[in-house]
């Protein structure tokens, strides 16, 4: 069900159980809404390690459905539009403010 794009740089995302908020596994531990504070895995082994931490969090009823989100090289920006929208919210409001152009 989760749509991930292949890439070598990843963060782990999930939805918080109590409110469904899209969250990211933080470098400092715990889950944060700001993808900019997410722990970035640059190799497969560290991605696996982050997923193991996430699985333990699932078992503590903190989050559901964790998965890897691939980032563009050199920036905390998901490759997939879906994941950018998950991280930053609907684009609807931005359009309403400037409805003369379609968002890139």
């Amino acid at each position: 069900m989760a749509k991930t794009r292949t890439g070598s740089i990843n963060v782990v995302t999930a939805n918080r159980l109590a409110d469904g908020q899209a969250v990211f596994l933080a470098a400092a531990g715990g889950w944060v809404a700001d993808i900019g504070r997410a722990a970035v895995a640059t190799e497969a082994a560290s991605a696996e390690r982050l997923l193991a931490i996430a699985a333990a969090s699932v078992a503590r009823q903190e989050v559901v459905d964790p998965y890897l989100v691939a980032l563009a090289a050199g920036e905390v920006r998901p490759l997939a539009l879906r994941e950018r929208i998950r991280a930053h919210g609907p684009t609807v409001a931005a359009i309403a403010a400037d409805a003369t152009r379609y968002p890139e």
Binding site: M1, L81, P90, T91, V92, I95, A99, Y102
Partner: peptide, 18 residues
Amino acid sequence: GLDYCTLANARSIPVAQA
């Protein structure tokens, strides 16, 4: 659409707005 829905492949509402 993709602004809210986990099933979507593309956005709908912004197209309608535009």
